[in-house]
Amino acid sequence: MAFWPKIRTGSRERVCNPDAVPYAVFENVGLTIGARKVLHGLTLSLSEDRVGVIGLNGSGKSTFVRLLNGLRSPTDGKLTLFGAPSAEAEKELPRHVGFVFQNPDHQAIFPTVEEEIAFGLTQLGADKTASREQARRFLSDHGFGALASSPFAELSEGQKQYVCILAVLVMQPRLLVLDEPMTSLDGLSGRKIREKLMSLPQKIVMISHDLSHFEDFDRVLWLEDGRLRMDGPAAEVLAAYEADIDRRLGAGMEVAAL
C-alpha cells in the first residue's frame, strides 16, 4: 500500500498492439515456482485462430496458459505478448486476453448474473447504470435475458460456465484462454459451449483432456513435464498423444503381469 498519492504523468502510452501477429512469442521461456522448475525452455510463437493444449496431469498446461495473460510471469527467457515484453504488457493484458477457468463457482465475482456481466463493462470504464443496461442487452442477445437477475449460485453447471464465458466475452478480448472449461458439463452442454466457442471471432487457446474438442483446431501443443513434447497440426499431435497413452498403458500391463 503506497502512502502517497500516485502521480500520473500524463497518459501512459499503450504498449500492446492487439492486432500483433504472432500474438505470443516464447523464446526459451522457463518458470520456477518456489524451488520447483515447472516450465523449461519453451520456444514457440502463436498466431493461429484455434490452439489446443494437451498433456498429462501436472505437465504444466495451466501454468503455461497463465503466462498468456500475466497471471504468471516467466522467470527465464523472453516472452513477447501482443508485440510487447510481457512485464510491460501485464497491465493491459486483461483487456486483450479473456480467461475462463475450470470451475465456474471459483471465478464468478458477483452474486447475480447481471452484475457479473456488468463488471466487465465497468472495468472498461462504463458507469454503473450504463453497464447494467448494456449487460442486460448483452444477456438477452445471447438468450440469457430471463436469467439476468438470477443469483449465480442457483444456475445449473452448464449455465454457470456459459455465464463465465459471456462475462469474459463482454469485454471483447482478442484472445480467449480456456483452462478445461467443459470438465463439469454434460455432453449436451459441452457440445453447445464448444459450438459457441468455434463460432467466435476471437483467437482461442484451450486446455482439455477430451481430445474430441480439438478436432477442428489448427494446432495442438503437447506438454510433458513442463517441456514442449510435440507441436503441430491437430490430427498429427492428437494421434501421437493417443499412441503414447496406449503405449504407457501397455507397459503398465506388462508390469502388472509380472
Partner: peptide, 23 residues
C-alpha cells in the same frame, strides 16, 4: 482454495482498480 481462485479470476479481468485508468 476457492478464494484463491476468485482472486485470480478478479486479476484476470483487470483487478479491483479497473482498466480505464491505464490507457
Amino acid at each position: 482454495r476457492m478464494s484463491d481462485n476468485v482472486a485470480e479470476a478478479l486479476k484476470a479481468r483487470g483487478g479491483s482498480a479497473g482498466l480505464s485508468s491505464s490507457p
